[in-house]
């Protein structure tokens, strides 16, 4: 059941995007596109511009030059559609242990930007929220406070929050930070299910090269420039990874 399918072919399109902080260039001439149903992992060294790239797609940062088209419109012109970019941040920095909110309240905030002022949730809104909690398997935590959950459970809450906004694409920034190793594999299985079973387009930044190489369809190798973008199985080899991380690193390849 492809509940998240959209008619737009290219969901996201970047053309010759450059970004710099002052004289410090972070992204150089980045072009690529994300199509409906894609499952893309972005890898690259620290400082290679991965998070900056996500922030540009999200409209949190403006590129120094170049074009960013999301859902067929320049990202700056998106209004309520922006809520349909399901974003899961790397860490919940502001979410301190005392933030007094339940899982349900946080998941439902994924639909806030879709409504007008005074908007009360309709039956449809509530169904979408319930569905998101079911998919992320957190329905049993609905009335628990967010601070009573483990790191992995909180991450699922944040994904449910993104899903509640009926997203056309899910964007995650290093989603397994703070999640223990045994939960990591479950987590990637969960993402794969979202993509395969629900047809949701997914793009995420990760350090777990060995795990994601077997999971995603495509890899974007990023170190300021796009080193390469294509099927994961073609790119996980010594040549490309040396180009990406420099040749000082030893790579061990093992079949899973």
């Amino acid at each position: 059941m492809n509940i998240f399918k959209s008619k737009t072919e290219n969901l996201i399109e970047l053309k010759n995007v450059n970004f710099s902080y002052g004289f410090n260039s972070v992204l150089e001439d980045v072009s690529f596109s994300v199509k409906v149903g894609d499952y893309i992992g972005i890898i690259g060294p620290n400082g290679g511009g991965k998070t900056t790239l996500l922030n540009i797609i999200l409209g949190l940062l403006k590129p120094t030059s170049g074009q960013v088209v999301v859902f067929g419109k320049p990202v700056g012109q998106l209004k309520k559609e922006r809520a349909q970019i399901g974003y899961v941040p790397q860490r919940l920095s502001q979410l301190d242990v005392n933030f007094p909110a339940t899982v349900y309240e946080i998941v439902s905030s994924g639909r806030t930007a879709l409504g007008n002022l005074f908007h009360q949730f309709t039956k449809h809104d509530k169904e979408e929220i319930e569905k998101a909690m079911e998919i992320a398997k957190i329905s049993q935590f609905r009335d628990k406070l967010i601070n009573s959950l483990s790191g992995g459970e909180r991450q699922r809450v944040m994904i449910a929050r993104a899903l509640a906004g009926s997203p056309k694409v899910l964007i995650l920034d290093e989603p397994t930070t703070g999640v223990d190793i045994s939960s990591q594999e479950q987590f990637y299985q969960f993402l794969a299910d979202l993509n395969h079973k629900h047809g949701l387009t997914i793009m995420f930044v990760s350090h777990d090269i060995d795990i994601i190489a077997n999971e995603v369809h495509s890899l974007l190798l990023l170190n300021k420039k796009v080193i390469s973008f294509g099927p994961a199985k073609d790119l996980i080899n010594k040549d490309y990874l040396e180009q990406l991380y420099g040749n000082k690193i030893n790579f061990t390849f093992h079949k899973h």
Partner: peptide
Amino acid sequence: KRLFLISFNEELAVANG
């Protein structure tokens, strides 16, 4: 609902438009 979201996480609120 809007004040709740910006209080919970300002970055998410900006990303949601």
